[in-house]
Every structure is written in C-alpha cells, then in structure tokens.
C-alpha cells in the first residue's frame, strides 16, 4: 500500500493538524513504512474471526440512575483558556 502526500494531507485535515511541507514529506515516509510493515497482516486468514474490541469478558456494565452533586462551576472552569458568563468562551465566530 503506497501512502501519498495527498493521503497525509487529507488525514491531517480530519485530525485538525497543520503540517508544513517538511512534515508532510516526513510523515508520508513514516506512514508508508509503518503501513507497509502493517501489510504483513494481509498474509493472515481472518475469515470467520471476530474482532476483539475488549479483552475481558465483561458485559452490561451499568451504573444506577442516581443523582450526585455536580462539580462546583469554579472547578469546572478552572482550566478554561478563556471564560465568560460562567461559560467556556470561544472568541471566534462559529459557523453553524
């Protein structure tokens, strides 16, 4: 599988990352190496093998529907880069 600069640029858009030309080159090469390496999995017959999402046989892990006190707003907002009116503040216009 050949990874192209275009692939890297597309993926970086999805991941919300800016990459300069050097980075695109570097990541294209790194990604190609790794993906080629991963292509060795193609040799394995996995027909009928179900994917393992969780390693432990746990199911129906539930919580009781009981209210607990929420956290003080001061603490909720304590790490906000910017805040106003008790809210997290994004100064840029948000296109809906």
């Amino acid at each position: 599988m050949q990874i192209t600069r275009k692939d890297v640029l597309h993926v970086s858009k999805l991941a919300k990352l800016y990459l300069n030309d050097n980075e695109v080159d570097k990541f294209t090469k790194n990604l190609s190496d790794i993906v080629n390496f991963a292509d060795r999995l193609n040799g394995i017959d996995v027909s009928g093998v179900s994917p393992t999402a969780a390693i432990l046989p746990l199911q129906n892990v539930f919580r009781e529907d009981k209210i607990e006190k929420s956290m003080d707003r001061e603490k909720i907002l304590q790490n906000a880069p910017e805040k106003s009116y008790g809210c997290f503040w994004v100064k840029n216009k948000i296109v809906e």
């Binding site: 009981k66 209210i67 607990e68 956290m71 707003r73 909720i76 009116y85 008790g86 997290f88």
Partner: peptide, 24 residues
Amino acid sequence: KTNTKIYCNCTTDFGGDPNTHCCP
C-alpha cells in the same frame, strides 16, 4: 427522562445556570 446523564451522575434537569450540571 432519566434522573442522571447517560455516562455520569449529573442531573438531566433542564435549565440551570450554565455549566452547573457538569462534572469532569
């Protein structure tokens, strides 16, 4: 209309001052 949110124990009550029905 559960009492609490889907993944934490905060209330689902409508309204309230902003960010007062929140936890980590």
